[in-house]
Design a protein around this nucleic acid. Structure first.
Lengths: 202, 202, 202, 202
DNA sequence: AATGAATGAGCATTCATTCAT
DNA sequence: CATGAATGAATGCTCATTCAT
């Protein structure tokens, strides 16, 4: 028998990445509902059959696209947070790096807002919550733990605050996605960072 | 000569409201992309032709649905904010009433998150921003103005802070939409309210 | 029992005429396929239900509209032909009056060309032929008979020539309907008239 | 880089031709308004999706169908006219070949009369006039020019006469489409040909 | 005589998906 | 790996027609 499905070939991975990037681009430009396999394929000079060949259906493509966005942003943030010494700076950096990444990758977040609507059942919604929000909140809580252990932070409930911080970032991003001129992202990031750091300090 | 648009009849208005509510229900349950005229009609025991009869196409229906959500929430908040005397209480109330209304109308906000993806062009996105966010930020800024005039508030930039406050509310709501068990909405509202009031006070 | 369906009331007739004229107008402007009851009603300030009330379905309306065009044109031509003394002048007048009437009622003939396509079955086509062409060809043959009896005409086969004369008129009209600048209707009528008169004269 | 429009494959062309022929058949039998993609597909044993795959919408299909009729007839006529030596024979042949082709392809012309109604806007009507009538009139005028140069023809205005000749053919065809027993096409063609040749000769 | 609410069948069109080549 | 032909189900929408008021 042929082995079930081992390590993907190099070209396989390259194609997937290429298709995902084209999909994000198209979603950002035309919206999720207008983004068909044919549309993605057209912008890439390939056929829609090929997309179906590399992904297990549309759901797979969308899921992969979201993971891509999230992983890239997560890596960007982690790198910068890890470079900070104390918890206050880590928290500040978390917020500001989040916002920076968003600003530098507008299309991704325009697409992401669109894709939120692609999770229909409660199960899918919960699953998205787990892949998207849990890691973020966990990262924040890790920063809190450091701050608490070092006596830098105190007087708050980590779980709740983590949701609020992440929410602040996402909510500001959302307004900026709909109208970039309505919100000054960088300043909002600054303000958020300072407000949260003050809140968490003893 | 003849007025171009006669006032809608009673039955007309009732049907529209009925269809909008059913649409919101269906969107919350099945997602926007799965919500067809046929699906809405089925749940209502009417034909899809009737929906087309009462709405000028799908865009009209979902626009009306969004306005319905927004107007109801806006009225709920305004009523409570207006009952408060000073700016701090108004601000606190704004945040807490927002969250309360969200909690009491989960389906509406599940639907709303889905509907964000229905605005494809930049123009539609901007238009949504104007109907959805501008009034909220304007309301907040009116509260700030009162606080500033009465010497209660100070030391911040109203425009920027209004986006942040609204963003905080929306961002927390978003997480709760995906997984209600991940966030304690009421507590988050409390925390947000206190944090923002403290930030705005002199 | 109520008498089956006696003489239509005055208002009934007025409404029918009004609706038929509006229908012809709309067909000429928007084309037959775009002409719905709703469209006709809109241009008239009434409801589409009323059209359905006055006509036994769309087929009845279309048939009545065609008869209206044909009858008006027939009356116009007959009046002018009857005023002529000899067969040559009658024939000349038949052709030129036909073309004159067409030129003065462009919308009617734009509509008529569109409506040709509304007869689907062979039976309907034959029926149209009988109401539209038979009277025309019969009229022409009556003119021929006069010419033959008076020794003015001769050397042709009335039946065949009648079809050719009518065809010439219709064919030129058709080109003019599609592009009025492509054909000089009046001159074409003149030329046709002269050619046919010469052909029929001994 | 890549050429924008690759040459259509063999199967592509075959399918298009097959679908066009089936469409003409269905239009001739059931009328244009009754001719849906579903109806055409049913008669062909394929799905309506396939028609949409091969044509850019209904407009593309019927435009292609009309061009097919016109091109085939045009080629048929040209071949026979070119075989004639002098202008009189060319003109005679033009008329008679037109009528012959019509007689041999009744369904095409039944369909064509129906399709006249598918051009709704003035722009579409003019465009049809240009593709359908302009080449015919131009061909006739080319024949006239030969006749004039060789001193065979004279005493008429080419532009006007070309419209009249084409109109005669079309008008007779029209009557025959509605009722084939009302007109003897071949004899009418003969008569028309003789009348026009006599008219054009000096 | 007239309305407007409601129907239900039909329409062109879109699209993810399948599959032989 | 990749293509392009083909499917079939679904979608928003149109419209003549019916009917209670």
């Amino acid at each position: 028998m042929i082995p079930p499905k081992d390590k993907p070939t190099f070209i396989e991975e390259a194609r997937r990445k290429q298709i995902i990037d084209a999909a994000l681009q198209t979603i950002a430009e035309q919206g999720y509902t207008q983004t068909s396999f044919a549309e993605i394929a057209k912008g890439l000079g390939i056929t829609k059959g090929l997309i179906a060949y590399h992904f297990n259906g549309k759901h797979d493509l969308i899921t992969s696209a979201i993971h891509t966005i999230l992983n890239r942003q997560g890596a960007y943030i982690k790198e910068r947070v890890d470079a900070q010494e104390n918890a206050s700076d880590k928290l500040r950096t978390y917020v500001e790096a989040s916002v920076e990444y968003i600003e530098q990758n507008r299309a991704h977040f325009v697409a992401l807002v669109d894709l939120w609507g692609s999770f229909t059942s409660p199960e899918e919604k919960t699953a998205f919550s787990e892949t998207a929000y849990d890691p973020c909140r966990a990262h924040l809580q890790k920063i809190f733990r450091i701050g608490l252990e070092q006596g830098e932070f105190g007087g708050f409930e980590p779980q709740g605050i983590s949701a609020i911080i992440q929410g602040g970032i996402d909510g500001v991003m959302l307004q900026w996605v709909f109208d970039p001129s309505a919100v000054n992202l960088k300043e909002a990031g600054h303000e958020l960072a300072e407000m949260f750091v003050r809140r968490c300090k003893k």
